[in-house]
Write a protein that binds this DNA or RNA. Structure first.
Lengths: 127, 127, 127, 127
DNA sequence: GTGGTCTAGACCACC
DNA sequence: GTGGTCTAGACCACT
């Protein structure tokens, strides 16, 4: 399901992370579905469990999955609409950065002005 | 300079990260100053270099230091005023989250309204 | 003239190599023109001369430039038409690989059959 | 196992590269066998790890070994017969050069004609 | 601990 | 001054 390219200069864990994110976002792994265990996926890709663990941790931080110790990791919805983990994670990030930027001296007005600008830009910017 | 508590539930790398962040923010490590090498700090704390590496990576992402391959890691200024990496990192984070939240359907007005609210709250530094 | 992205996971020397190759192929650096010295380009990009040297060596192997110790590095023509260093390098590579493949047991007919196939494919395949 | 001659005009890394290639081709290092680590071989030859690294990189490009970050470097079979990395590398090189030569205007027929010629020549391995 | 990339600074041979 | 090689030592991703 995930293809790795060892000749790619991108780290393996990023390839795994992006591959899984893609599966979640596109719905290939449906909301709430259990993801393969770290060890199972590691075995199936013939890489080290640490590398999978790192990809899972990144995706959890991004809100694309939740992992429950002892149970496994479960997909959250990545698409638009409804409240979901991804959106919660983004709001957490948004609030935290806004809070500290104001603390550092930026005004709420300056920040508000950036929002529309940011929204208009292309996402681009690879790893 | 950094004290580790192995009985603490917080992972070692977080203890190192927070310890280093504190040194930078308080100015104990001054702007531009070279931090100890990954291996040196690992040796001095008697822990694995990987753990230090993880703390350094987190701090670089947060903008508290820059690490230049082959040269070392250097402290950035954490405080307010002037151009600093921390502010750049926060703006990057702010823009990215705003962009995706708008993509997910929130309006710029809703987001703008959150800014003042967020700024008023206590920081509540999580683990 | 060449832009570096330190956050890119692609190594610096590949970015330099590809940037220079592009300048030669597009004719921005004309045939026979002297390229900046290893040290000068290193200084202008604020990176180590060794890194530039590595890019120059790769481009020489590919036939995009010749470098003469004590004199400098000079661009070859990258475009189509006429005989040029790039084509010479390719023919050298073609002959050498064909020779050894025949030595390893492939027949000239098998190889000839591959040519048209290869020519039809997309070049793709990033680093 | 590898002898270095510092009075030889050939660079150390080429002497190492050719020495290793010889060991692989002659079967002194058998197919799939793990080569000494970069650091270990450097220590044993009393030279810098970078120099060994350079030789390993060249041999990997030639298909005589594969190196897997974090695991080590492993010998491929250099001889004829069966599937081996060397042949794969040669085919990759053959296809790539053929493709670009056609792109530059040579006809597949011209190239096909070169194959038998090339195969008849002596190998003339340069420094 | 392993391969890979980068920096810094040195020396060489050539011009 | 120029390209080329080498050393020493750093960070980096991964096992």
């Amino acid at each position: 399901m995930i293809s790795l390219n060892y000749r790619d200069s991108r780290p393996i864990y990023e390839q795994v992370r992006d591959g899984l994110r893609h599966l979640v976002v596109t719905g290939a792994i449906t909301e709430g579905e259990k993801l393969p265990s770290v060890r199972a996926l590691a075995a199936s890709l013939a890489i080290n469990p640490n590398t999978i663990q790192r990809a899972y941790a990144a995706l959890e931080e991004e809100g694309y999955l939740t992992s429950e110790p002892g149970r496994g990791a479960f997909a959250a919805r990545g698409g638009a609409g409804g409240n979901n983990l991804r959106q919660e994670a983004l709001l957490r990030q948004f609030d935290a950065s806004a809070r500290e930027l104001v603390f550092l001296g930026m005004t709420p007005e300056e920040l508000a002005a950036r929002i529309s600008l940011a929204a208009a830009e292309r996402k681009g910017e690879g790893a």
